[in-house]
């Protein structure tokens, strides 16, 4: 059975695994980071409801910067899946 696995198949299998691991761990980190930013923004709105617009704007920009690492991980996954450099 194991003799039927070609090197190309092995490369594709590990590429898929690598893509999944990359985006998965990145999403874990981003989720925590964006959640922290959102929780602090909610606290701020609760304390100072009149500053809601400014807080929302700052929170969204901060979350977008947080997201960058995840986007890089996403691009790594996309390259591994659709434009594989090894196969």
């Amino acid at each position: 059975m194991s003799s039927q696995i070609t090197p190309e198949a092995l490369i594709y299998a590990f590429s898929a695994l690598g893509a999944a691991v990359s985006i998965g761990f990145a999403a874990l980190g981003i989720g925590i980071g964006q959640g922290l930013a959102a929780s602090r923004a909610v606290e701020g709105v609760g304390r100072q409801p009149e500053a809601k617009g400014d807080l929302l704007q700052v929170m969204l920009v901060g979350q977008a910067v947080t997201e960058t690492t995840g986007i890089f991980a996403f691009i790594v996954s996309i390259v591994l899946l659709f434009a594989n450099p090894f196969a």
Binding site: A64, E67, T68, I71, F72, F74, I75
Partner: peptide, 11 residues
């Protein structure tokens, strides 16, 4: 990072 942020989100 600016270009990849937009590109990654939309893609």
């Amino acid at each position: 990072s600016l270009s990849f942020r937009l590109f990654g989100n939309i893609l």
